[in-house]
Amino acid sequence: MTILADSRLRRRWAISGAFRWLCRGITMFGVLMLGVLIYQVAEAGLPWLDWQFITSLPSRFPEKAGVKPAIWGTVWLVALTALISVPVGIAAALYLEEYAHKGRISTFIEVNISNLAGVPSVVYGILGLAVFVRWFALGHSVLAGALTMSLLILPVVITSSREAVRAVPDSLRHAALALGSTRWQMIRYHVIPAALPGILTGVILSLSRAIGETAPLILVGAAVYIGFTPDSPMSEFAVLPLQVYEWSGRPQSEFRELAAAGILVLLVVLVVMNASAVYLRHRFQKGRS
């Protein structure tokens, strides 16, 4: 009897240990792949990455070419996209979680939002061209691009914001209401602050997606060569991924190395953006405890 139990126990321990190693291995595999990717890009791109590259306009000579308009275009685009999609996303999530009656209509909206998350990004580009560029007559502006990008990331922003709002314990709501707050006060002073870190996580993830998109922006008319930096939401714009895409298709091998340098700049912009969002999230969490 004891021998049997012993061998069973050993087997269970073995499975448990193996599973742990499997998970560790799979995680390491992802990290390793990312490492290889970054190493390859850095190897090709680092020699080109200097102050001149960051502050110059595009050029036909690789040694004179730079990404200044593309960096600023990307910053403008992402900032505007955040300004548009965050309030809309949070408002939609609050409505669905706090106000809407659970019925056919809210189920219908829910299904639609989840389906929209799976629509290929080019389709949003076609929509953006028809609605924002032509119908709203915004032209090939960074605002039209940002509105299109907002549509693209809203499903993810809404879904993750809803998860965050749902995770706020009901006891908090009941306590607030029992003390006489209105629904608005309850949401403003209790639900939103408690849900904000979770909401920000969703926003970070979706903005990281928006920053790397090219296909919808080609359709809404983002430029590749642009001799100036955007100075208003109605300005025309170029973005980093589009510049990388164009350079990587050039016949001269130097331009493919420039593309790698462009990827590095894009990664830095992405890391800076995410780091500031993580910092914000940290501050909100701290402020509450």
Binding site: H140, I218, G221, A222, A223, V224, Y225, I226, L242
Partner: peptide
């Protein structure tokens, strides 16, 4: 201010 896009000939 000159801007140049790459939508393809047809696009």
């Amino acid at each position: 201010k000159v801007s140049v896009g790459v939508s393809g000939t047809g696009g």
